[in-house]
Design a protein around this nucleic acid. Structure first.
Lengths: 195, 195
DNA sequence: GTCTTTATTGACCATGTAGTCCATAACCTA
DNA sequence: TAGGTTATGGACTACATGGTCAATAAAGAC
């Protein structure tokens, strides 16, 4: 049998994520990744292929994590669906505002840098946003069944609008908009939902 | 007297913008800029300093252009303020959808890549968004005076929300959301404005 | 203990990078 | 026409970059 790996793959991917997140794809050297993870370059290339494949692993892992987190936030019974939605919108604004170093969302950063010329990044980011929108739509349908949101509204269109607001909040937070502004946006969005 | 420049500065900045827009800051080499602009590297460095200074010129120029375009879109008499707002929201969605190569917004891309570690980029992008929000607020105040938008609503908060939706539309478009989705978001946002 | 297989390390390579330098060119003034 | 000044082009430098390679190490199978 073969020699076993000395590193934990998830741990390496976490370090690599931190690095790509901070300095982007083009701005991150494999030497920097090697330093951040503590691996030699041979191990790095042996385990993950090349720079692009490693980035895709990291990027897709991040997408999975977001989807899981949002699913956890929005999953539950109909009678609390509206409350979950409000809480989620508020928590995105609060988390964005709490990110005082403005590192932002890695999905947004990776998409901005690469989606135009990398079909895999583009597909991953679209897929992720579609799933997020579907989670929102499912929750909204629950709130409609319970009578907390206007039952005549199209839940998919409402979900798309909420998703747009949430991505907008992230974009504005990245640019440095104040905590008060971001939280006011969240409140306005909630207030305008059709009851 | 000295030898005059053989290039048009605005033209060079336009070419450099195209290049930085496509491949980002870190992903763009000065050789690529030289090739794109047709300038020798000596002229490039002589005229613009170094890579970062050139990027800032390009970035700030783009910000100015956006502000001017939005100001043109939203400026006018009160009795058409609401219509201008709707048209603007629809045109952002339509333009984003029409960008089939998903090059997106250079302000968003530059901010995503650099604002965390470059104070000048951060300041430029925040300033730009604040001005855009103010243009929206001014228009909304006009629509309120004319009775097309609920006069009890806070125009600044409404403007911030609309700005968030617009930045969200750009983010979703970049990720590949369909024309239909983007236009539906624009319509939903308009429909939910308090009358 | 030997063998097969895979992991590790870091030197190494070819190429790309930001930025400099200098010989030369172009222009205006005197 | 000579001189002062700035622009041009591209060779050049020092270093960073993505990626490879070969020697060595570690583990279980037999």
């Amino acid at each position: 049998m073969a020699r076993p790996r000395e590193f934990d793959e998830d741990e390496v991917l976490r370090s690599a994520r931190k690095q790509f997140w901070a300095t982007g794809y083009a701005g991150t050297s494999m030497d920097a990744i090697a330093a951040a993870t503590g691996l030699g370059k041979g191990s790095l290339y042996g385990a993950f292929g090349d720079k692009r494949q490693l980035f895709l692993r990291v990027f897709n892992g991040y997408c999975t994590d977001i989807v899981n987190a949002v699913t956890r936030n929005l999953d539950g019974p109909d009678d609390e669906a509206y409350e979950r939605l409000c809480r989620h919108v508020r928590s995105v604004a609060a988390n964005t505002a709490a990110d005082t170093t403005h590192r932002g969302c890695f999905l947004a950063k990776g998409t901005a840098e690469l989606s135009e010329f990398d079909a895999d990044v583009a597909a991953g980011s679209l897929r992720t946003l579609d799933i997020l929108q579907e989670r929102l739509a499912t929750d909204i349908r629950g709130a409609q069944r319970h009578g907390d949101i206007d039952g005549t509204a199209d839940p998919d269109e409402l979900a798309a609008l909420v998703l747009a607001v949430l991505r907008g909040v992230e974009a504005l937070g990245k640019a440095g908009k104040s905590k008060e502004d971001l939280e006011a946006i969240a409140e306005s969005a909630i207030a305008l939902l059709p009851k």
